[in-house]
Design a protein around this nucleic acid. Structure first.
Lengths: 135, 135
DNA sequence: AATCAAATGCAACAATGTTGCAAAATTAGA
DNA sequence: TCTAATTTTGCAACATTGTTGCATTTGATT
C-alpha cells in the first residue's frame, strides 16, 4: 500500500514529511532510526516536524518505536493485523540492525500473585545471519 | 551484605556516594530512579558524580539499569547469582514501580535461520498487586 | 602522616525531546 | 479552480539526560 493511501485510511493530512517517513521505513527492511531516515530523504525537515510526524504516526498505529538499551531509538511499520499486545524484536549486537519478529510469540513467565499482565516487550540480542556467518 | 563490603569485594574505592547509592537501592524493595535516589540521600552530589557512580557500579555487576519505554530509567541491585543472560522486569502502568522477577525464565521464540541469541530482555507491563486491588 | 591513585565538582558541551506561535501547506466546499 | 478553514511546519527557546576535560579533593597504602 502506498504511503498516501495509508495516511488517507487513517484520516491524516497527507504531508510530504509523513509520506517520506513511511516510504523510507517501508523501503528499509529493518527498523530504522531518525538519523537514517533523514539521510535517505533528500528534503530536510525540521527536527520538530520529524518528532511530531513520528508521534502522529505512532498514535495512529501506523508505525511503532523500538528502544534498545537506552538511547537507540528505531521505528518500524506496524503490521495491519490486529495490534498484538506482545512485541518481539531482534537486535544485532554487531551491526546494530533491529528487526521485528512478527511471527514470534512470547511465552510469559508466571507473575507473582495478584499481578496482572497487560502487554509485554521482548528484545532478543545476538547476531543476525550476516554477522553470524562472518565470524 | 553492607554497601562497604560489596564495594570492597569488587576492589572499588568506598566513596560515600557509591555507598549511599547502594544502600538506597537495597533499602527500596523496587528498582528506583536517579531522582528517587537523590531525594533519599541527604548529601547532594553532582550529577556527573552520580552518573559516573552508576556507570562504575553497573560495570562491576553490582547494579543494573532498567529502561522502560523510552525515558524511564531505574536501577536495581544485581543478584549474587551467576549473572543470567535473560532479564525479566515488571512495570506497573499505574503506579510506575519496576520490579525484577528473578525467578522468571524467558521462553524464547524461535529465531530466523542463522540468527544467534546471546541475551534477552523482557519487560512485562501491567498492574501490580496494589494497583490491581484498588480498581 | 605522606604519597599516590582514584573520585569528585565544575564548566562546557552534545543529543534528544517539548512547547508556543506565526507562516505555510493541505483539505474541503463553492 | 479559487477560497476559507484547518492542520502542519519552521523557528526559537527551553528542558532533560548524559558526556568529557581538568583542577581539586578524597580514599587507600605505606
Amino acid at each position: 500500500m502506498k504511503a498516501e493511501d495509508i495516511l488517507h485510511k487513517h484520516n491524516l493530512v497527507r504531508t510530504s514529511c509523513r509520506q517520506s517517513i513511511i516510504d523510507t521505513i517501508v523501503n528499509s527492511g529493518f527498523a530504522i532510526s531518525e538519523e537514517e531516515i533523514k539521510q535517505r530523504i533528500d528534503s530536510t525537515y525540521d527536527r520538530t516536524t520529524f518528532y511530531r510526524s513520528f508521534k502522529t504516526l505512532i498514535e495512529n498505529g501506523i508505525i511503532h518505536k523500538i528502544v534498545v538499551d537506552n538511547q537507540l531509538v528505531k521505528y518500524a511499520l506496524s503490521e495491519n493485523k490486529p495490534i498484538s499486545k506482545n512485541h518481539v524484536h531482534f537486535y544485532c549486537n554487531q551491526c546494530g540492525i533491529v528487526e521485528c519478529l512478527p511471527g514470534a510469540e512470547i511465552k510469559l513467565p508466571q507473575l507473582p500473585n495478584g499481578y496482572q499482565q497487560v502487554e509485554a516487550e521482548l528484545i532478543i540480542k545476538g547476531l543476525c545471519i550476516k554477522c553470524n556467518n562472518q565470524d
